[in-house]
Design a protein around this nucleic acid. Structure first.
Lengths: 349, 349
DNA sequence: ACAAGTCTTGCAAACGTTTGCAAAGGTATA
DNA sequence: TATACCTTTGCAAACGTTTGCAAGACTTGT
């Protein structure tokens, strides 16, 4: 059995109230008494029961983050930012993987509310239906959407990278290097972030005089999906031209993948087709996950400040904690920047 | 204010006890009454307060995992295994990053004990001093060491990959391919797992007749550390031979890095020195993190069943939950296997 | 119709804290 | 010496559940 306040009160021949006061605020208890109690607490290895405390205070000093898949390095980095910020503020973090399943996401949210966490960071991908949204909105824990476009659920605070600008940057870069025949390796249409990158990219190409509309290839937003889709595309093209052996050089000279995982898969497909990056095809990605720099060739990409995004989300969340539901949603969009590495080359005009 | 049991009891004109019983076990309450209560609960959006429940039951249905750095894909995969297993058993997971800091690790462990989590999975790297060990040992939450050699702390259950065997396998593989001049890219000496891989590897080379002792190079156990150390080594060697321009071909034909991150860093160093993998140097790693297969060339490595290790740890942990401290520590070592990809080639004799 | 049993329900204690309130005790001021 | 004030301490309620116990209602068997 664990040692409780009562035990140490008995040992010191005081009331539990005095013991409690000594261990928390120092106010209103004689220094000598207080010291006696502190000593006893240490001696008996007293460990306050946070559950009991939480019951009376109504606070758990715990934040929760619901995430699609922690194996995704992007989320892992985000989670680190969140964790560090929470830790520094004296909060703990509960991490939940909902595995892209909407059921599981809702299950977790329920649990978290039952546990009375002080706030929730939502960065999973599954969309909420309207019943779920209603349910969320009347929960009293503040919620911040992290890396989720606000489209689905109004009324929440959001932290988001400037996906549109990033896509635009990618387009500018490729066009600036002289590329005209470009492939856009896009993700599923219903992913808001990816879609924003896409439109930014297209806008940039349009803005360039003479920028022809790019080819668009849609794939799952992971390495394997991108690799598969691009391989198939290259293969089909080779066949159409009755060049089964020779690689289909020249159809496009550059490629923008809407995230790094896809860029990596695409790079593989390109090499497997006997082509070279960046000699035959320049590749640019999005995210700047840690591995991008370790690839051969190192991947040129759009950097998202993942860690800082996590931090910012916690700041906003903490500002809402304890406030009555009269919050004003805050929206923060974080700047992105180009990281030029070696997977893109300039085309001589 | 949240709606409580009392509210729904009042609404149905029953006692809170009946309400509680209806919502939990169905036993001992008339079906009609029960239904009335269930309806009211739904209507009022009742959400049981787990804190209160935890206080009386003494269980939180929460497991905790303390991890060095979740950005490390190895830990992320481990965490997924843990999470899934916990979820399936009806538990939640609290993930804590201690960032390789011993202080922070201890801080988290304290918090977790105060929160009365039902069990703790420890897979952080920081060593515990004896005071900390004592403290842990008298806590009443069961603890399982995950991917930590039992050396430091006896008395705990452990789940571990067969590091020795994996090292041995790597040695066998390289020797079997005809390599004789081999470099061992080792990690810090005080890391038990890495050390076991090292000795396994050396034993395998010794066992081979004519297996010369390998060169040993020690580095930090991450990409950058390995890259730096190897680059320096290759450079120094080139200078010694007064071949500043020409790469130092032939000093060794194969290399074993004790984890994949290091193997990746090493591969980079090799290419940067103008050499080729696997033509000039064969590379073999350890872990089989997801990215290994996406590298160019895809990395030959020793596979650890990370996900399953997480699962196994939870199984053991759950078996101890609720048991009086009369546990018998269980030790589970998981099998590793060789994943042959393209970073190793056979030497023609 | 009565005893014995079963089913349903309520009462109240317990879990380990925090905290408002009031009762002491002490000290300074008049 | 009496008054007022401040400091230190204890009492007890509260947080929202679960659960042992007992009382009442109902059923069954004789």
């Amino acid at each position: 059995m664990a040692v409780t306040l009562k035990d140490i009160a008995r040992a010191c021949e005081v009331d539990v109230a005095t013991a409690s006061r000594s261990l928390n605020g120092a106010y209103g208890v004689r220094a000598e008494t207080r010291q006696r109690i502190l000593d006893a607490a240490r001696r008996l290895q007293y460990r306050p029961n946070r559950i009991a405390r939480g019951l009376v205070t109504g606070r758990s000093r715990t934040l929760a983050m619901v995430v699609g898949d922690i194996r995704n390095p992007f989320y892992a980095e985000l989670a680190r930012g969140v964790e560090d910020a929470a830790y520094r503020a004296g909060y703990e973090l509960v991490l939940c993987n909902c595995d892209l399943s909407s059921d599981r996401q809702m299950h977790y949210i329920h649990s978290l509310l039952e546990k009375r966490v002080d706030g929730i960071l939502l960065s999973a991908v599954a969309r909420l239906n309207s019943a779920e949204q209603l349910e969320l909105s009347r929960s009293d824990a503040p919620i911040v959407l992290l890396n989720r476009p606000p489209g689905g659920a109004r009324g929440y605070s959001t932290v988001l990278a400037d996906n549109y600008r990033g896509g635009w940057l990618a387009g500018e870069t490729l066009a600036g290097l002289g590329h005209r025949k470009i492939l856009l390796l896009a993700g599923p249409r219903d992913n808001g972030n990816l879609a924003a990158r896409e439109t930014g990219f297209l806008k940039a190409l349009q803005a360039r005089s003479g920028g022809a509309a790019p080819l668009i290839l849609r794939a799952q937003h992971n390495s394997e999906g991108a690799r598969h889709a691009l391989a198939e595309y290259l293969h089909a093209r080779a066949q159409r031209r009755r060049l089964p052996a020779a690689p289909p050089r020249g159809a496009f000279t550059a490629l923008f993948a809407v995230n790094d995982a896809m860029a990596i898969g695409a790079t593989r497909a390109i090499f497997e087709a006997g082509l070279n990056v960046p000699l035959d095809i320049s590749v640019i990605g999005f995210d700047d996950i840690e591995f991008s720099g370790m690839l051969r060739p190192p991947l040129t990409t759009i950097h998202q400040p993942k860690y800082e995004m996590g931090r910012a989300a916690v700041e906003i969340l903490l500002r809402h904690v304890g406030k009555p539901a009269g919050w004003m949603p805050e929206h923060r969009t974080m700047e992105v920047r180009l990281v030029m590495r070696e997977s893109c080359r300039a085309l001589r005009a």
